[in-house]
Amino acid sequence: MKRALTIAMLVLLAMPLLYAMSQLPPHGSATSPAYTHISPRYLERGPEEAGAENVVTDVILNYRGFDTNGEVTVIFTSLAAVLAVLLAGRKGDERPVREPAAEPSPPSVVVRFVVRLLGPFVTMFAVYVIINGHVSPGGGFQGGTVFGALVILITVVLGRSVAEKLQPLGVRRILQAAAPLTFVAVGVLGLALFGDYLAFPRDEALAWVRTSWLMVIEIGIGVGGAAIISAIFWQMGGDR
C-alpha cells in the first residue's frame, strides 16, 4: 500500500517535470535563448568588458562574481565543518594526537631527492596556472589544487614539519580564509569606489584595474584552496 502510494506520488511528480522538459529547446540547439542573448555578449565583449582574455574567467569572476563569491564561502564553510568533525573530542588545536612512534619505512633518498628537485617546478606550474588563467584555461582553483597536492607530497615524503613551514601557524587561519576574504575585500572596494558590491570599473581607461582585481581574486582563491586542501589532509592524519 505504502509502496503503491510512493510510486503514484513519483509518477505524479514526474508528469509535470516531463511536460516542462518537453517545452525546453532541443539539446544543443543554436537558437535556444541561452545561446542567442547572453552567450554572444559574453563571447564578443567579455575580454574588453570584464578584464580577462579568457572568457571563462570573465564569466566566473566578473559577470557571475556574486555566485563565485558564494561558492568560495561554501567551500570554506565545508572546511570548517570537516575540521569541526575531525577535531571533535580532541584537545589542542591542530596538533597531531601522537607523533609517529617508529616509521616502518622512511622514504628513500631517491624519493626525497626527486621531491626536492620537482618541488620548485610544481610551484612554478601552480603559479603559472593561476596567473595564466587570464589568457588560457586555468585559474585560482586549479592552481591552488596543484599547490595543495605539492604540500601533500612534501608531507608524505619529507615530513609534516617541512610542509608546515609553507604555512606559518600565525597566519594559517588567514591563509585558509584567503579566498572569501579577498573576494569580500574586492567586493567592498567596489562598493566604496563604484557604488555596488563587487562592482568593477566600467571606464575604458581603468581596464588595468579590472584586470588586476581579477588577478587578486585568482591569487586569493589559489592560496585559500591550497591551504584548505593541506589542512584537511593534515587533519585526517595523512602524515602518519
Binding site: S105, P107, S108, V110, V111, V114, L117, L118
Partner: peptide
C-alpha cells in the same frame, strides 16, 4: 622521465 621511475622505486621499496 623523472617521476615515473621514482614512483616505481617507491612502490617496490615499500
Amino acid at each position: 622521465l623523472v617521476s615515473s621511475p621514482t614512483a616505481g622505486h617507491a612502490l617496490a621499496r615499500a
